[in-house]
């Protein structure tokens, strides 16, 4: 009897201690999680991918109704300016038709010149179309979740484009999900060139709507309105995907670039499978990128 009482007293004491220090334990556990995340990045990367794969079906289920609602709101807004929009589009259409003629002529000419010069083109790109099922946008990240993954041939480092231009690159890949890091994210650094002057530079994001152009040899030549395109340096991206246009800068130090992609309206994107992503070590250091290397 006495032993049992002692035991009960002991368990009671243990329980009080546990309750008293529960907060300390929990705080320590949270710190431990952070430290583990810092020490073992591959483990965290795998955990992230697992969480993404688990959350994607749920997100996919709510993405469709949300998309419908978003579109309804956008439709209502556009309805108000239907007439002006129509006039603007008609004008743009006639201008684009003129450009199309010019482009056809140039393409033919280009092909003939390439044949003459025996020019070997880079690998051909193929596309994987994906639905944006989640926004990974917070005060610290600018990205999105896609409903395609390794099974569809997506690998880290691939370019993600929309009709307007480059949206970002693939950062993490699960079996049926992938995370895009937008060009506006603070971790995004892209080798680019100015379309008009062919000058090379680095385009960096800083979580704000505008991008920053750095490492230019001569800042002076840049004018507002200059288009910025991918340079293909490093081999991970195709050359010449439009990213944005210069909105300010030139004389002073920082040059700001406004991306062409409207990140608040993304619904479908295309992942560019360029076939050489394995050359650039962008995603986790795991050898997930190498099997995708294809010789064209």
């Amino acid at each position: 009897m006495a032993i049992r009482d002692d035991f009960e007293v002991a368990t009671q004491q243990l329980r009080t201690i546990l309750q008293r220090f529960a907060l300390v334990f929990l705080v320590l556990a949270a710190f431990a999680a952070m430290l583990i995340g810092k020490a073992d990045t591959i483990l965290v990367e795998n955990a992230r991918v697992l969480a993404l794969d688990l959350a994607t079906p749920a997100l996919e289920a709510i993405a469709r109704p949300v998309a419908v609602a978003n579109r309804a709101i956008a439709d209502l807004r556009e309805f108000a300016s239907l007439r002006e929009e129509n006039a603007r589009l008609r004008e743009e259409n006639s201008r684009l038709l003129a450009w199309q003629t010019a482009a056809r002529r140039l393409e033919n000419e280009n092909n003939r010149l390439r044949e003459l010069a025996n020019f070997r083109e880079g690998p051909e790109a193929s596309f994987i179309t994906a639905r944006v099922v989640g926004d990974s946008v917070s005060a610290y990240v600018r990205g999105a979740l896609l409903n395609v993954g390794r099974k569809a041939g997506v690998t880290p480092g691939q370019a993600v484009v929309t009709g307007e231009g480059l949206a970002g690159r693939i950062a993490e890949v699960g079996d049926n999900s992938a995370r895009v890091l937008f060009v506006t994210d603070v971790n995004s650094r892209l080798p680019v060139q100015v379309e008009r002057t062919r000058e090379r530079a680095i385009l960096a994001g800083n979580n704000s709507p505008l991008l920053r152009l750095t490492l230019l040899q001569s800042v002076a030549g840049i004018q507002p309105g200059d288009r910025i395109v991918t340079s293909g340096s490093g081999g991970s991206f195709p050359v010449g995907i439009p990213i944005g246009e210069v909105v300010q800068g030139g004389s002073e130090g920082t040059i700001r670039v406004r991306p062409f992609t409207d990140f608040s309206r993304l619904e479908f994107v295309r992942v560019v499978d360029y076939g050489v992503t394995g050359l650039v070590n962008t995603g986790p250091p795991a050898g997930s990128a190498s099997p995708a290397q294809k010789a064209h």
Binding site: A30, M34, I36, G37, S136, Y140, V141, G143
Partner: peptide, 9 residues
């Protein structure tokens, strides 16, 4: 929420 290098926890 992700974000490369962001603390987990």
């Amino acid at each position: 929420l992700g974000g490369p290098g962001a603390p987990v926890g």
